[in-house]
Design a protein around this nucleic acid. Structure first.
Lengths: 174, 174
DNA sequence: TCGTTTTATTTCATCAATGAAATATGAGCT
DNA sequence: AGCTCATATTTCATTGATGAAATAAAACGA
């Protein structure tokens, strides 16, 4: 696997030559897109690599973390679908996987019995408290050398990009 | 599919509560990781959506673009593997797909006949010249409202992040 | 009560991507 | 010539994810 640095260098040269021959090309924006795709992709690999020993995939991890970080530790499959960008079929599967491991339980919802409530269990909380800190050193290392200023800038720019991406599909939404 | 904005809001609340209960958590770095994962993922979906009508997947597109942007329009499977992060088996498949569509041709390499040279064809060039500009409006829209300053900042910060990610796996490499 | 809608699950079918190992060919060295 | 390494392809298998449609149960409205 080539280093990101190598790939980026390659990309820089390529876009340099491309911009010279294709009139009207937004070269700087294209470069930023590629940078986002490359670093984002590598970051995701990194996360999945770290999750693997804990037998979690990204969706399961995300689902569990949503539940853990909720004040009441619960949600419904429908809501979880929303925030994890998963289909309903998949969310049932994710729920099954987490239930099988005793990390969450399902319970019928009192107010609306069509719904199901997914609760994180005490074992689920313990699991998160053990596994999450193993991510901390890696996350810190990723942003080594970033000043407070850098972090605020990156935060701001990524949110701006996210907003533009939202507009791309639904120009009306906030 | 929930908007990125909604997901980010959710994430902010979650990390806020998490940071309060888990001592030693690098909350700001975690937030940036999530932002990178979310926006990077959405950006990738965006790209693949745009590529789909042209019957290209990401790897095929990348491979074709590398060839197109080379001064001599050629490379070898091995080198292409490097820069696309694909295995050799996959690169053979990608080559087959592009050859079948007449966008590239394979030729034996004169200096080292174990190698194969992959050349972009005239039809391949025409294809790129037609399809690539269809991406321009989207790419521009993604970075709408970004000043030159913003773009330079984002560029710099992403490269810094990329370098850190490289170090994470090979602390010796440049 | 009946019909419609919402919510979740189950069933079934893919589909896409990937990759390890065996194979074929040629380079390079002694 | 004979051995080892490098390069690409082929074969075979798997995994992993994903999702459409049918099903079940309950809310909601006329």
């Amino acid at each position: 696997m080539a280093s990101l640095g190598k790939c980026i260098q390659m990309m820089d040269e390529g876009i340099g030559r491309l911009g010279a021959t294709l009139p009207g090309m937004p070269a700087e924006q294209a470069r930023l897109s590629r940078l986002m795709l490359m670093t984002g992709g590598r970051l995701q690999e990194e996360l999945e690599l770290t999750l693997h020993p804990h037998k979690l995939n990204h969706s399961e991890f995300l689902t569990l973390m949503i539940l853990y970080s909720r004040p009441d530790g619960r949600s419904t499959p429908g809501e979880l679908c929303e925030y994890t960008s998963q289909g309903a079929t998949n969310m049932t599967r994710i729920g099954n996987a987490l239930v099988d491991r005793g990390l969450v339980v399902r319970a019928p919802c009192r107010e609306d019995r069509r719904r199901v409530e997914v609760h994180i269990t005490a074992a689920g909380r313990r699991f998160v408290q053990k596994m999450l800190p193993t991510l901390f050193p890696r996350v810190s290392a990723m942003f080594a050398g970033f000043s407070d200023h850098d972090r605020r800038h990156l935060d701001r720019l990524l949110r701006k990009l996210a907003k533009n991406l939202d507009h791309l599909h639904d120009p009306e939404a906030a």
